[in-house]
């Protein structure tokens, strides 16, 4: 462990002025109709389809997979999906992903979303992974042309219950 000691030693010797941690309080954007804004962002920013309601039946894992999201974020269409089963690869391997979110779980911005995650004891207990997903996989790597379905889901439908 010489490397660790050497690195820490150099840091201790070299760090100059030590700055205080600021109090993180951002006067962040807030939407009165947070559900409507979330639906709009999912369509326009994330590039997902939005359905008010529940999917008819939960599809078999395969071409299409269905998953429950715990938090929806209106400012950017992100949906928090903690890992709940041993294999998470279906989230990325499926051609199409249905994500179900409760209207009461939609917040305005990422600060609120992260506050909820920190407060919850449930996440990272059984499986040590969680992700925010905002729409289908995208790329613009070939001459800047936006293409959906770079590697993971090619399309996403968000169901708001």
């Amino acid at each position: 462990m010489a490397a660790k000691e050497n690195i820490l030693e150099r840091l201790r010797a070299n760090i100059g002025e030590r700055f205080e941690m600021p109090n993180i309080a951002i006067n962040a954007i807030h939407y009165d109709n947070v559900v409507e804004k979330f639906a709009e962002t999912c369509r326009t920013v994330s590039g997902a389809d939005v359905v008010m309601g529940t999917p008819a039946e939960e599809d078999e894992r395969g071409e299409t997979s269905t998953v429950h999201g715990d938090i929806g974020v209106a400012e950017n269409g992100c949906i928090w999906i903690p890992q709940r089963e041993a294999d998470r690869s279906f989230l990325f391997r499926s051609e199409h992903l249905n994500i179900i979110v409760k209207a009461s779980d939609i917040v305005s911005n990422m600060h609120e979303a992260y506050a909820r995650i920190s407060e919850s004891e449930e996440y990272f207990k059984d499986y040590k992974y969680g992700t925010f997903i905002s729409g289908p996989s995208k790329t613009a790597d070939i001459e800047g042309a936006l293409v959906y379905g770079a590697q993971a889901a090619r399309s996403v439908t968000v169901f708001i219950e």
Binding site: I26, A115, F132, I133
Partner: peptide, 26 residues
């Protein structure tokens, strides 16, 4: 996590002009 909220909001907006990256994985 409180700090993470600040950086998540800035990264994609500054980098590619998107509200967020599609995946923010922990």
């Amino acid at each position: 996590y409180k700090a993470m909220g600040v950086f998540q909001r800035l990264l994609a907006r500054c980098g590619t002009g998107q509200e967020t990256t599609v995946y923010t994985s922990h």
